[in-house]
Design a protein around this nucleic acid. Sequence first.
DNA 1: CAACCCACCTGACTGC
DNA 2: TGCAGTCAGGTGGGTT
Length: 288
Amino acid sequence: MPELPEVENVRRDLEAELRPGTRIAGFDFFRADLRDPIPKARLKKLVGCSLTHISRRAKYLLFHTEGGIILSHLGMTGQWRIENAKDQKASKKSAAKPSQPHDHVRIRLASGQTLVYRDPRRFGVLDFASEEGCSNWNLSRHPRLRHLGPEPLDRDFDGHYLFEQTRGRKSSIKSLIMNQEIVVGVGNIYACEALYRAGLRPQRKAHGLDGPQCERLAHSIRQVLAEAIAQGGSTIRDYRRPDASAGGFQEAHAVYDREGKNCPSCRHPIRRSLISGRSSFYCPSCQH
DNA sequence: CAACCCACCTGACTGC
DNA sequence: TGCAGTCAGGTGGGTT
């Protein structure tokens, strides 16, 4: 579900809602595992620690506490929401039960707020990401983060870098930009949209792109992600911000999920084809 | 090794 | 109405 813009919006919304420095009062686990087992015992040691801030690396959310870092990946359908004390009063007799189907974990805070993780398909991840008692552990050593490429909005991601990465690569350019070892945060929606903006067909071989094309593509990736962040991300079906509101960027999609509809630029019908098993949308007239 | 296929899960939607 | 089939924003393990 969520790509970089959606995860970044969740991060911002949560951080804006939470009182800084609030302590973790407890955890409620309604599920032993998501994609992988949840390290309940490790997480429970964070009770009493204060939550200092929330950051993001790639599509991972990182909840920083005095006692370590909670790492969260939303998979396809993961959502975080905040319940306030008055919401919980209504369900206080069922405090040990989830308030919605597919609620898997609840983090109770001393402020009275509760962070709730919900994930119907359970493709998400919840992990503990640092050594006990050490909040400055080098996150790049974590097995889940170790192999990640650069952030697309950082300086080290540009056309030159992308050109270097495409050399000798026989995969499609779309698969390449969705490869999190090459560049993080780009999923199916934004890969399609960035390739449209760059005028490149998604099935083009990566090694066939020249320098200026890589320059255009890197620029398009950065641009589309930045715009999507500003619009609150894309809501196709499941994605919700922590306050349950939808994103707005789906209105700006030129090609994604628009098979048969008109290209906003030339009015040709948008086509869909499968690339590595993923639906890929493009304009046969504007993209070459 | 690079590049693919598929499983992992649930729910929504389609067509018969 | 129901039921089978298809598809979905991601990732990683196994296989070509």
